[in-house]
Structure formats: C-alpha cells, structure tokens
Design a protein around this nucleic acid. Sequence first.
DNA 1: CATCAACCTGATCA
DNA 2: ATGATCAGGTTGA
Length: 266
Amino acid sequence: MKIRMDVALDPTLGCGQAHRWHKAEDGSWNGVVGDRKIRLVQTDDGFECEGADEAMILDYFRAEDDLDSIYAECASMDDYVAKLIKGCPGMRILRQPHWECIATYILATNANVKRIGMMIENVCREFGDDIGGTYSFPSPEQIVKGCDRICNCRLGFRADRFVEFARKVADGEFDPDSLEGMGYRECVDTLLTIKGVGPKVADCIALFSYGHMNAFPVDARIGNVLKDVYGVEGSYKKLSEFAEKKFGRYAGYAQEFLYHSDFIII
DNA sequence: CATCAACCTGATCA
DNA sequence: ATGATCAGGTTGA
C-alpha cells in the first residue's frame, strides 16, 4: 500500500522515540506496533507500507501534522533549532499506542538505548505472541499471567514497576485511554502516579503517545545541550520551564532536533 | 522544594 | 583478564 506523506523514515524511526524499528540492509524499515508486523520502504513522496491498514499507519505517523507549519514555527522561535531543522527534514513525532508506550518507557530508566531495546525484545519474546519471526507487544494480561517468568527479561530493578503497572492496567485500576482528553498538565500528573514514571518519562509519554507537542523531555543529553547552547542548567523544573518559554507549543519537535544535534549536519 | 545515594545489568574502559 | 564506571532516570530519605 502506498502512503503519501511528508516524512523521512530514517530520522523518524531511528531517532529513538519508538524502540521496535530496525533498518534492514536493503534500506527498508521493519518493526512491530502492537500486534502488527510492519515493513516500510521510503519513496519520494512518502512510503510503501506492508502489514498495517491505512487508518492505523496514518494515525501512527500523525498524518494530520503539517510539518511545514510546525517547522516554520519552531524555526521562528530559535535560530539554532532553525539550522538543525534544515539539516533534518521529514522528522515526525509519532503517536504510539498508550499502553505500549508507557510500559516501554518504564523500562527506559538509567539504561542506554541498546539495553532498553534489548529489554523490550525480551519482554515481547517472553510474553507476546509469535507473529512470524518476531513477537507482538504483550497485553497487560499476558504479563500478569506469566509474571513468574519476568526474571527471564533481565529488567533489573524495573521488573517490579513493570509488572505492577501491567497489573494495574489489567485490573482496570489504571486506564491508559482515560488520559486521551486531558490537557498536558493533567496528563503528566496522572502519569506521575505510576511507579517508575518520573518527570522525564512522563514527558516522553505525553509527547510520543498523547500528542502533547509542548512536552519537552529533559534527559542527560538534552541537559548538556541546554547548557552548551543556551547556557542554562539546573533542576528539571527549571529547564523544562525554560524550554516551554523558549520553544513554544511545538517544544517537543524542537527537543527532537536538539537531541540529535550531534548527528545533524548544519 | 532541593539534594543524594542506591538501584539491575550489560557494555565499555582502564 | 578483571574490576570500576556509566547509561533516555526514579525513588525514598
């Protein structure tokens, strides 16, 4: 199926916002979203897609976002970001499934990207369904049901938090869909009630799953950029407030460009 | 509210 | 080779 869209798959799927995509040697992108095994091939005006229906993939790529106007607004807020944008066109923020996004980001604490990906694959292999050479992201129920095997996933101190969250969702105590209509602040505050979700992870989830484009996750790397480029440092709250003022309602997009400023050729 | 050590594990570095 | 250090942070004191 052919999808027409202003998008560059490499920065969008390779930037680290989603963890289950892998670029094959032939240049195609293979990944799993929920229980769908998907293959994408970049074309001049979008991409070729196998494994997902059109509505699902348009939703996942936030097809309603007009990159030109978003980039123009980001660029108008800051010269440095403006330069980065020119060097990295077609980068889109995704809309990841809520449960999957929260669960995976609970694993993303104090570990490097490689290990995060490894933990996620372990979880999928252990609890998910075999969907032909790879595994679906497990449901909360699948995790709860097999939680005595969690040690096989090598999650370390994250294991308890991960299982506890799965149990809460399975029990209906926490409903990821219920955050849908919330504003940014309420969404983040609700996410912060989850054990294993702190301010940085909450912002990642708000941005990558609930569409709060003003969210600006501050991790170690972004902290360095803010210090080196803008001369600001301090608490999460302080940096976060600086970013909100500096980059405006699309701060999340600005964050993505700043995060990868090392790799973007200006 | 700000600060700080401890935390599983696997990779990297001395 | 073997031990120290570090990595998309969060928690609890």
